[in-house]
């Protein structure tokens, strides 16, 4: 993998820091008038998902990280691995629970997810922005209620719990924003 100097750092560049692939979020060149320049770099560690700031000496280089985002559709879970498939090549990839992380509660069969591969192995799974899931458990609401009264918790088929309006009932399919974990609407029939 190529090396990148701080002069080439920009948002989105993937580099190896502390032995872990990282995504550069921000890079700021700082030059005190009479002092030595340095770079203030904000990174996200792609395995631990931690965001932190690092000080680099300007001109220093780091190794690039072989990180690739691919769009794969979710197939099934075999108890240990989560299997995804490339819809064009039919190539399959198995991600472990660590790579899937919290995204597990938004995995819907046949939905296309973004799988981040590091050296060919999945390290992160990002679900689509919206998923549709069935409500398996919720208190019966009051008839005639319209949205905006705070709602009630509902358990979805994947185990995710979201707040839904009181008029939404068990057995209905709802659309949820996976980035905020919030109810968006009833699913289109």
């Amino acid at each position: 993998m190529a090396n990148f100097s701080t002069n080439e750092f920009k948002a989105g560049l993937k580099v190896m820091i502390d032995g872990e692939p990282c995504n550069i979020l921000e890079n700021e060149y700082v030059k005190p008038g009479k002092g030595q320049a340095f770079n203030r770099v904000k990174i996200r560690k792609l395995i631990s998902n931690k965001v932190l700031e690092k000080t680099f000496k300007s001109g220093d280089s780091v190794e690039g990280a072989d990180v690739l985002d691919t769009e794969l559709s979710y197939l099934y879970n075999d108890g240990e691995f989560y299997h995804f498939m490339n819809n064009e090549t039919f190539e399959q990839v198995a991600a472990d629970a660590k790579a899937v992380g919290d995204s597990v509660k938004w995995l819907v069969e046949n939905d296309v997810c973004t799988i981040t591969l590091f050296n060919g192995s999945p390290i992160a799974v990002t679900p689509p922005n919206f998923v549709e899931l069935e409500i398996v458990e919720t208190d019966p609401g009051l008839k005639g209620d319209t949205a905006g009264t705070g709602g009630k918790p509902a358990t979805l088929s994947t185990g995710a719990v979201v707040r839904v309006p009181l008029f939404v009932q068990r057995g209905e399919v709802v659309k949820v924003d996976t980035r905020s974990g919030e109810y968006a609407s009833r699913a289109q029939k």
Binding site: I17, G35, R40, E53, T55, K57
Partner: peptide
């Protein structure tokens, strides 16, 4: 005193560089 994480060894740098870094940050 420097609270950010530094990718290079500040002990090997000049005292003035450390002062300037502390000042800037």
């Amino acid at each position: 005193c420097y609270t950010s994480e530094c990718t290079y060894d500040l002990l090997a740098e000049s005292r003035d560089h450390v002062l300037q870094l502390l000042f800037s940050e």
